[in-house]
Amino acid sequence: MRYLFSLAVVLSLLWLGMSGVYKPLMYILGAGSVVFVVWMSRRMDVVGVEHNPVLYSWRLPIYWLWLLWEIVKSNIEVSRAALWPGKLVRPRVLKVPMSLGSAVGKVTYANSITLTPGTVTLLLEDDHLEVHALLESSAASLESGDMEAKIAWLENHK
């Protein structure tokens, strides 16, 4: 029930942000579509699984800022490699051990790795990841385990 309510709030905000025409008829149509989508989501049984309360923690924006900084750094590395590929490109596949417990944490980890240029997740298993790394530096930053520590920090907030 809580999940359905939060889904309705998010969808209403989305509708208000996208519409741009604020007239009574439009409000009725918007409310109707929100109710329809919530009803459909309930029927499809997709509400609740991905709406983990951890996603609404105050630590999330801090994590995003940190991830953005990582993305900027690795973007500069990969751009340099694009200009001198013979000297810098050292592709290899790493096996990264992972001790995160929850499914959301694992998927966040795998997605953050893929979002950072220079590393792409190939396989997500229960206790490890297989990652394709482009450069020495991207492999090294992954092996240091900084990102996993950050996600553990993100998840421990209750």
Binding site: S79, P85, V89, T116, P117, L134
Partner: peptide, 14 residues
Amino acid sequence: RFPDFYTRLHAAGI
């Protein structure tokens, strides 16, 4: 300029 498919994927990520 990158040599194979997986490395090209990284560049497309930029």
